[in-house]
Nucleic acid binder design. Structure first.
Length: 176
DNA sequence: GTATCGATTAGC
DNA sequence: CTAATCGATACA
């Protein structure tokens, strides 16, 4: 079964210079893949129950990665829905743990080469599909909050985060 | 050794 | 808002 999704939301994480990164305090068994070859997967286990997928971007020895926070499901929706408990299409891969869940990723996929499948990130030009690329603060972190390293398709229904902060919208203007 | 915190999510 | 549940981290 082939599962395909378009990446609609990501976050960048650095190494020793990024306090919000898992690699900030150096290499551990868990973040080891982040120090490995670029183009490979860094899949971490968190909160004792979730896996999340990153694409390693730095050269070997230089910790740097991009967290895949959300996908727009394109193919294999039935399989994704099976794993995700039959939620709506928009929610199939909305949120980093949901992405890994929908794709069936586990620790076994940590460190695998993304350039040659079975988990494959095709080297194709970006397809924004008419959506505007927006940026904002990374979600769920408590340090280096000022770095706006989250990038997403503004208004796309498959992007995570609160739909609209209750009450007034645009208060503080941080969602651009 | 114990205590606390997560690159989260589902459910109340 | 909280529980779930465990690796990593902080601290005695």
């Amino acid at each position: 079964m082939r599962l395909i999704g378009r990446i609609v939301e990501v976050e960048a994480y650095g190494g020793a210079a990024d306090p919000a990164s898992h690699a900030f305090r150096g290499e551990t068994p868990r973040n080891r893949a982040m120090f490995g070859l670029p183009g490979h997967a860094y899949i971490y286990y968190t909160y004792g129950m979730h896996h999340c997928l990153n694409v390693v971007t730095g050269e070997a020895g230089v910790a740097s990665a991009v967290l895949i926070r959300a996908l727009e499901p394109i193919e294999g929706l039935a399989s994704m829905a099976r794993r995700r408990g039959g939620v709506t299409r928009e929610r199939l891969a909305r949120g980093p743990a949901c992405v890994a869940r929908a794709l069936g990723l586990t620790g076994a996929d940590d460190g695998t080469d993304l350039t040659c499948g079975p988990l494959w990130l095709p080297a194709v030009p970006p397809r924004r599909g008419g959506w505007r690329v927006a940026r904002g603060p990374r979600i769920g972190i408590s340090r280096a909050v000022g770095r706006r390293w989250r990038f997403f398709l503004a208004g796309h229904p498959c992007v995570s985060g609160r739909p609209v902060p209750r009450g007034v919208e645009g208060r503080s203007g941080l969602r651009r």
